[in-house]
Amino acid sequence: MTALMLGLGIAFISLAVLLLVLVLAFGLGTSGPTGVARSLAMIDGTVGRQSVARNELPAQERFVGPALDLTRRMAVRLSPTGTAERLARSLDRAGNPAPWTVDRIMGVKGLSLLLGAALGLLYAGLDLGGLVLAIILGAAGFMMPDLLLYNAALRRQEQTAKDLADTLDVLSVCVEAGQGFDSALLRVARTGEGPMAAEFARVLSEMQLGKSRSQAFSDLGDRVSLPEVKNFVSSIVQADRLGIPIAKVLREQTSAMRVTRRQKGEEKAQKVTVKILFPLLFCIFPALFVVIIGPGIVRMMANLFGTGSVFGG
């Protein structure tokens, strides 16, 4: 009976977590105007949550929002100072995924803490072992969103490193063909795919909002923590301040980027021999030894002990 109740409790908690993830990921009930239509609606006037009946709010605002708000407050109290700023930087490096904000991540951290502690108590019971397991699972759940965000940022950095050389090639060709640097950035942002095109689009948006070119590219260097990007950003900033032709800077950066990409390819090729050593020792060599040496060992044992041939009598 106790095992049945424990299984039902774990099943209900897993179902609740699944429903929460689906609501957060797909934003149920949050469709509305976007782009220019949304801007015009904001100009006409905004409607606060207090002026709308509760049953007219979307499902996310009625159910998920208050729960995440409570867990967010708990996570903020348990987190050290500067956690919000660190999460904001991590979101910038991860490309600011659409459904996620700093407040939502803090809410999920608090919710994961409660779920981990509840699962630990349900599994081990209300004793010292259950308390220790609840603390461990709660701490793991509390840190899990940070690890997932760090992993997403790391994958995006790797994709940025792959796309950087090709993006700079297109940018250099556009500038050498006679386009202005801002126009070339706009073309790359519109026609390109990948993280670098998105970053260039953000640089253009910040410049349109009033930032200088040097400041916008400096912020790009802060968001993308790659040595190649930092070198490119510093070259563009110096060229903008000193009046050096952008086409020449882009040509040099493109050549250096090709050399860097070739060196990274050679480095990965040299690491293959070391990485393949352990699979060979523990997976392939034992099977080869069994296939090649196994029959000989069987025949030797048969001849030594006089048991006859094991393959034909």
Rank of each mutant, 00 (worst) to 15 (best):
A94W: 01
V274D: 02
K162H: 05
P97G: 02
A75W: 02
E206S: 06
I136D: 04
M1Y: 07
A3I: 14
Q208P: 03
M74L: 12
L209S: 08
N151K: 07
A16E: 05
P227C: 04
R93A: 12
S205W: 01
L168Q: 03
L121E: 01
P245M: 09
G178A: 01
T30N: 08
F63E: 00
L70I: 14
P286I: 15
G45R: 14
L277T: 11
A11R: 09
L131Y: 07
K230P: 00
Q50L: 12
M1Q: 12
G116E: 00
E193P: 00
G29M: 09
A25H: 10
V233C: 04
R155N: 11
A201H: 04
G313F: 15
F26P: 01
G48N: 05
F12L: 15
A117D: 00
E61Q: 09
I244P: 00
S31W: 13
E266T: 05
Q159I: 00
S172M: 09
L164P: 05
E206G: 01
M1F: 05
I13W: 04
K275R: 12
V310A: 12
G107V: 10
G306F: 09
R62M: 04
G27P: 02
G312D: 13
D69G: 12
L277M: 14
P145G: 01
I292T: 13
K264W: 06
